[in-house]
Design a protein around this nucleic acid. Sequence first.
DNA 1: TTGAAAGCGCTAACAC
DNA 2: GTGTTAGCGCTTTCAA
Lengths: 343, 343
Amino acid sequence: MSVQLKDIAKHLNISISTVSRVINGTGRVSAETRERILKAIKEFGYQPNEIARSLKRKSAHTLGVIVPDLSNSFYGNVMKGVEKVASENEHTVIVCNSGEDIGKEEEYVQLLLQKQVTGLVIATVGANMELFDQYKNSGIPIVFIDNMPQMKENFDVVTIDNAKASYDLTEHLIRQGHEKLAIITGPQNQSTAEERLQGFRSCMEQNGRLVREHWIGVGEFKRESGYSIMKSWLEQDEIPTAVFAANDFLLYGAIKAIIEKGLKIPQDIACVCFDANDETGLLRPQITSIIQPAEKIGSIAADIIMRREKNKDLKMFQKVVLEPTLIINESSLIRKGDRNRDE
Amino acid sequence: MSVQLKDIAKHLNISISTVSRVINGTGRVSAETRERILKAIKEFGYQPNEIARSLKRKSAHTLGVIVPDLSNSFYGNVMKGVEKVASENEHTVIVCNSGEDIGKEEEYVQLLLQKQVTGLVIATVGANMELFDQYKNSGIPIVFIDNMPQMKENFDVVTIDNAKASYDLTEHLIRQGHEKLAIITGPQNQSTAEERLQGFRSCMEQNGRLVREHWIGVGEFKRESGYSIMKSWLEQDEIPTAVFAANDFLLYGAIKAIIEKGLKIPQDIACVCFDANDETGLLRPQITSIIQPAEKIGSIAADIIMRREKNKDLKMFQKVVLEPTLIINESSLIRKGDRNRDE
DNA sequence: TTGAAAGCGCTAACAC
DNA sequence: GTGTTAGCGCTTTCAA
């Protein structure tokens, strides 16, 4: 495998450790030999073998990240944040795409453990705690983002207050005069989906609104789910005047159904959701949405790991709760007298 | 570092190598000892140290990927494809975000080399070949996607025919009756940007159209570039009737300028671009665009590396040219009599 | 069928 | 200042 320490040591007729010293800038070496070594290194195109270094130092200088969907721009931004901080700290990052498959997630957790990652950042799609037990006694820090496991007390967490954000979003709809609210959320074993429903519920109750159980749709955080759930509602006699979707894809699907039915947004049905971050500026209608600071979530998560690496015996766990942004747009704004009631 | 081979060997009073054998399923071991070992492994929660394995086998079972922007969904999809194939072959993938910074890209190339990656997939932002020289004699395969370096003969490549796709897109505009075409492209040291301009040019010439040099805008593959270039054109007396953007962000910016000016798409200015893959279904106008098979690009690139790993002495390099899809949408379709000429 | 031992490429204690 | 040497945790000959 190409050129290594001993090659250049032999070439210069000096010991391997002297060469190592100048490479690592550790210990003293005479200016003269240093020169010769540096020259030889360049000449030979020597590159230290990071695997060997990692084995020796017992750290791969690597973070592991597991997300449900790499092509989703929310996670893309999370990755960007993680990568940035990792790189600033001379670490690399291994990405794993669980595809929302809990089995796959589990394999990855294991694999990353074996790869001796410095820490793990994970947007889990389950709530299974046993999975993470091995991490606890391996001493490898693990930071949860987005979805939380049940026993989050023993781990670091960086997230937003989903219930509160959901409450605010719901309140916005109620303030707009809506009585008939429907919600489409995701798998209830994912905490985000569950907390967003909770926030919706508590706001409705707080405001004396009736939550109609048949207008609680549970889908898969995908466009198809949003579409079919909305479609089924639209086939009934009474339809909601406002729809809250727990993420953007669910809403895009719902909107498709609404448009196909010939209804107007927001006049017939107002729409709001999480994560509709419009990077194009061309979405129509423009969506009222809770925007999470995705990149920041990633960078803070990575930062926590870096901190733990420097301070191994940190016993306290932290829960970082970031502030999302509520962006109010045309999809939920009713101009006076502009509304067609459906009955 | 937690439990290791020697621990369970000692516990069972057998040799380390026997334990290794049952873990790897290599060599014969009596059924009885195998049982005892398996039991102990489970009991101890033993996890093999992949770093040590990698050092021994001289392969990290890892792919390196360098992309300009992880939050861009095109690259997100590429990553997804790479990760999928890597995972199927029991490899992990290290991601690096160059941020379109050639210096950073260079550092990453070096770093990944040191990390002993099995192969490198890169969407380079430069055309600098020296950078990749070290790879050549390290024997680590490198696959270029998206942007190509100058001397692509010595490397594998998976891409689309940018010039042809660009030609087709331009031809579509000409067929729509446009005479005054403008193009906004990216940095000319990126082959995609350059080839797309080339394709535009050759189509214009082929069709006897004059290419107006002041309507060739060169920006940065970002929304701001598209906006400012378009804006400057709109401030002049004569404005184009059609705009071709070399990627989606450039176009989104251009559209912003067009709308601000009070002009209509496509009636006043028709718009087309590369990579406007609308996953929301809500973009208005819907964009006529060349869509690249991003995930497939990633998976094929990874596949090439996996193949090279199995067949080290493969001397031939391959150039895989994938077929993109031209999606024709309202942003460039003129209904008869619907056009306002600007002079 | 099992064990001893060499060694993957490097770092770091320890000696000179 | 420089060299010798003992590992890091594992796989894999080679012997027994």
